[in-house]
């Protein structure tokens, strides 16, 4: 289908994206500052944390020296400003719990998480579109009922419980697939090995995210079956499968784009739990370690990063929506 566009559309979408980006920056600032204040308000002192029990034997000069070096006793705002100045240059401070720079911790792990999330999300989308369309097409049949029924049940099931069940059946009982990590024993990391290790975590993530998409697609398709252009297509005698795929699905996919953006926080949460179950070397373990050890440099950076991803995802969804539907006004 070709669509004629007015000449200004590309530019106005660019402007819209810029405006939304300009809104995302203050949000990130507010979130990071709020986290900073929260961390400051907590009764934990990073210097005491650094010394541990050794603080009893440490000389007061050394403790005072460290306090001055780290600037622990300065006002929150100036500390935040110092953090922000460094953060802009990519220096996010040091992680106390993992004894590494935060950027190194994240750099080591982010790739694994992105791999898991992107493949899982794609699979969830495909499942959602396929099963949702099938359920709507065969509305009221046993197929529809079993699809929607299992979607409700899956929505209610905690993802880590689902993960454990899958782990037990496929990795422990049937022994078809490895149940954790990305390599077996001390094997070097290889594409094939990672692919095999990925199957279970990706499947669990996809299955736990798919129900929302399935139910959404089904509902929207059922609504679009009553629209004029669909009735018109049927009246012209087009076979059902063409009407569904060519006419009904097309219009009902628009709101789907918004849902993609809206589901991102849930996706990140789901990935966190799936990673924990399958000992995936992503950011989940680092997050939990950071929380247990009150490692705010790491925890804060991870949280701000996740927020940035969510904002970016929403922006992308809105831009795609505007591109797909020329009627949408880009007023921000």
């Amino acid at each position: 289908m070709t669509r004629t566009r007015t000449r200004g559309t590309g530019r106005s979408i660019g402007l819209f994206a810029l405006r939304r980006l300009a809104f995302a920056v203050p949000v990130l600032l507010v979130v990071s500052f709020a986290l900073f204040v929260l961390a400051k308000a907590s009764p934990f002192d990073p210097v005491e944390r650094y010394f541990g029990v050794r603080i009893i034997g440490a000389s007061p000069e050394r403790v005072a020296q460290l306090r001055a070096n780290w600037g622990v006793d300065e006002p929150v705002v100036s500390q935040y400003w110092a953090w922000l100045r460094h953060a802009v240059t990519g220096d996010l401070g040091d992680s106390l719990s993992l004894q590494q720079p935060v950027s190194a911790v994240i750099g080591d792990r982010l790739g694994w998480t992105v791999l898991l999330v992107s493949v899982g999300f794609t699979l969830a989308l495909v499942l959602g579109l396929l099963l949702g369309t099938l359920a709507a097409w065969r509305q009221g049949s046993w197929l529809d009922r079993s699809i929607t029924g299992s979607c409700y049940a899956l929505e209610a099931a905690p993802v880590f419980w689902l993960g454990l069940a899958v782990l037990y059946v496929f990795a422990l009982q049937l022994q078809w697939l490895p149940g954790g990590g990305v390599t077996t024993g001390s094997d070097p990391v290889s594409v094939g090995g990672v692919a095999v290790h990925m199957v279970l975590p990706v499947a669990v993530l996809a299955i736990s995210q798919a129900p929302w998409f399935v139910l959404f697609v089904r509902q929207n398709l059922l609504e679009s079956f009553t629209q004029d252009h669909v009735i018109g297509a049927r009246a012209r005698g087009l076979p059902d499968h063409l009407v569904v795929s060519g006419h009904a699905l097309r219009t009902s996919l628009l709101p789907f784009l918004t849902l993609l953006g809206a589901r991102l926080p849930e996706l990140i949460t789901g990935a966190l739990l799936v990673e924990t179950v399958f000992s995936w070397p992503g950011i989940a373990r680092a997050t939990v370690e950071a929380a247990l050890n009150v490692d705010f440099a790491l925890l804060g950076a991870l949280t701000v990063m996740a927020t940035g991803v969510v904002l970016l995802g929403n922006l992308l969804a809105d831009v795609l929506y505007a591109l797909a539907d020329p009627r949408v006004a880009l007023d921000g």
């Binding site: 925890l299 949280t303 927020t307």
Partner: peptide, 23 residues
């Protein structure tokens, strides 16, 4: 409402983890 939007864009579980870490 802008503040609400800002908080809403932090994944719930992560924010919950931060709060539990502090308390």
């Amino acid at each position: 409402m802008r503040v609400v939007d800002a908080i809403a864009s932090v994944p719930h579980l992560l924010l919950g983890i931060v709060i539990v870490a502090i308390l």
